[in-house]
């Protein structure tokens, strides 16, 4: 069983207290009426399905009942960090690619 850190409660809690709520960082168009059907459809229905690092929305449904974001590796299921809504993730796919490259001695 996984332990997930709830940034609101400030401690590790059992996985069963949480629910995943899909991809994070999807801003609602500020003026929906000005959207084309394609743009609105993109916003409503289309989600990323990466192999690797993914930023997701989770909710601590049995605890504080608040939403937060989690960065999860979709292959290993490792939860690399959790952070509050409105904050920026510190672990990103671009960041890890860079690190990997520098670890291998490749300079950008």
């Amino acid at each position: 069983m996984l332990h997930i850190f709830c940034p609101h409660c400030g401690e590790l809690r059992s996985e069963e207290e949480f629910h995943a709520k899909g991809q994070a960082h999807i801003p609602r168009p500020l003026d929906p009426t000005a959207c084309t059907d394609a743009e609105w459809g993109e916003y409503l229905f289309f989600r990323d399905n990466p192999r690797g690092i993914h930023h997701e929305l989770w909710v601590h449904s049995a605890g504080c009942r608040k939403y937060f974001n989690a960065t999860r590796h979709t292959v290993t299921y490792e939860i690399l960090e959790t952070y509050k809504i409105g904050e920026k993730p510190s672990v990103t796919a671009a960041g890890t690619a860079e690190k990997k490259a520098s670890d291998q001695g490749v300079t950008a």
Binding site: A62, G63, C64, R65
Partner: peptide, 8 residues
């Protein structure tokens, strides 16, 4: 004592 948590 003094702690309170919502849980399963």
């Amino acid at each position: 004592a003094g702690k309170a948590v919502g849980t399963h």
